[in-house]
Amino acid sequence: MKPGYDSIVLNWLIDPQQSSTEIRAVDRDIECKRAPIPLELGVGWISKYDLPMGMSVLRADYRFNSSATGKLVQTARLEASLPVETLMLHSLSHGRSIQDDHIMKETFSYGVGFDLFRYSQEIAVTPAVDCTFDCLATVLAVGRPALANLLGPTVADRTLVALGLGVAPAVVVRAMPSSVSSILQKAIPNNMTGLMRTLFIQARVLDYLTALIDHLGTNENDAPPVKVATQRARDLHEYLINTYGKLPTLETLAAQFNVSVRTLNNDFRAEYDQPIHTFIAEHRLSEAHAAIEGSDIPLKTLAERLGYSHVNHFLAAFRKKYGYPPGNLRKRQKRELS
């Protein structure tokens, strides 16, 4: 089965001296082709691998210099006309991307913990990347016939509907647990070539699709899917416990889940018996207690990792919860070890 595209054209914006790059289905795999990123910003590569079962995996790897911190840079205008309606699943293991979709006439922002899903027969987008972070994006493209062949027509239809992509064109950003998205993110090996690499990528993609339909509850033989509110709360919980540093505001999280702050908080409280803010504070202070007991990590570094704007705020919160400052816990641990 041939790939679900004929060609994809990248009209580069990040470097005006570069015109365009065409990725064609008839071409061989592309491995780490240099992207025209100005040296003052950093370096980048693009890769493309076509699989025997009518699927393709694309990757963009951008690594930015510290001098580029804070810049939001448009990379290229990406255009493609596809022979069939195609599901494209975008996942970031690093960084943040903002896509201006010229067909949907909307802007979509996604990053670690939130994947972008597109179902369309035509693509016209201008992605931008936040140069504060390196960006590693993996995209799986699978045409509707190939999806039906892999999953079965019923499961394919149920999966598209569960993703909110029942009618093309459609684009959604959804919270996705790392147990699912990390399978796609790690699909391309660094130490394989030739047929071995192709088979490895194909196996990982099939594992990813299996994990995705299990997560969505769209497998024909599965029990009925969990309620939308319950799944939303679980997805948020997974995101919160796997994210370090400063978290997005509740307003931003609610927008990512396409609900109000009140609905998101009520869903979370119903599932975990705590409002979101309380859970975050309790979970992160418990992590801090364990880290102080089991490592020599500096308190300032620990405070930054847990998202506190100042170490003094962390010290006050820790004392309030445990009745003693973190320094006392560290001293006690050192005495017990000596």
Rank of each mutant, 00 (worst) to 15 (best):
T107M: 02
L51G: 06
V57S: 12
L41R: 07
D61A: 04
I103S: 01
D134Q: 10
S67L: 08
R59D: 10
G44S: 12
S67C: 06
F133M: 08
L87I: 07
A141L: 12
E106A: 07
D101T: 05
M88D: 05
L72Y: 04
S47K: 12
V112I: 14
Q74D: 13
P38Y: 14
L41V: 10
L78G: 01
E122W: 13
V139L: 09
T75F: 07
G111Q: 04
E85I: 07
V73G: 01
D115W: 00
T75A: 12
L82G: 09
S93I: 15
K48P: 00
I123C: 06
I103Q: 01
P83M: 02
L140V: 13
T69I: 02
L136S: 13
M104V: 03
L82A: 10
F64M: 10
K71M: 11
E79K: 15
L89S: 07
T138S: 12
A76D: 12
I103M: 01
L87E: 03
L51I: 11
P83R: 01
L116Y: 04
S67I: 10
R118Y: 06
D61K: 03
T138V: 15
L72V: 08
Y110R: 02
W45G: 02
I123H: 03
E106F: 04
A141E: 06
T107I: 05
A80H: 10
A128D: 01
E85D: 14
Y110D: 01
S97K: 13
C131T: 14
K71V: 02
R63Y: 10
G143E: 09
K105Q: 04
Y62F: 15
T138C: 08
V57N: 10
V125E: 10
S91D: 03
L140A: 11
I123K: 05
G44D: 10
M53A: 08
S66F: 04
D101V: 05
D100F: 10
F133P: 01
Y119P: 00
L116Q: 13
A124P: 02
T107H: 00
R63W: 09
Y62W: 15
P38R: 13
L136C: 14
L41K: 03
D115L: 03
E40W: 15
P52N: 13
V129F: 12
F117K: 03
V43M: 14
L116M: 15
W45F: 15
H94V: 12
T132V: 01
T126M: 12
F133A: 08
S81Y: 02
C135M: 12
Q99W: 09
H102Q: 14
V57G: 10
F133Q: 09
V57E: 09
I46D: 04
P52C: 06
D115A: 13
S56V: 09
V84E: 11
P127C: 07
F117S: 04
E40S: 15
G54V: 04
G44I: 07
H102A: 13
H90L: 02
L116A: 12
F114R: 09
L82V: 08
K105N: 03
E79N: 13
E106L: 10
M88P: 02
G70M: 08
V43D: 12
A124G: 09
I46Y: 09
Q99A: 10
S97T: 12
R96A: 05
L89G: 02
V125W: 06
S66V: 11
A124D: 15
S97Q: 14
F117Y: 13
V73S: 06
V125C: 11
P38T: 14
W45E: 11
A137V: 07
Y62T: 03
G44T: 11
V57P: 07
P52L: 11
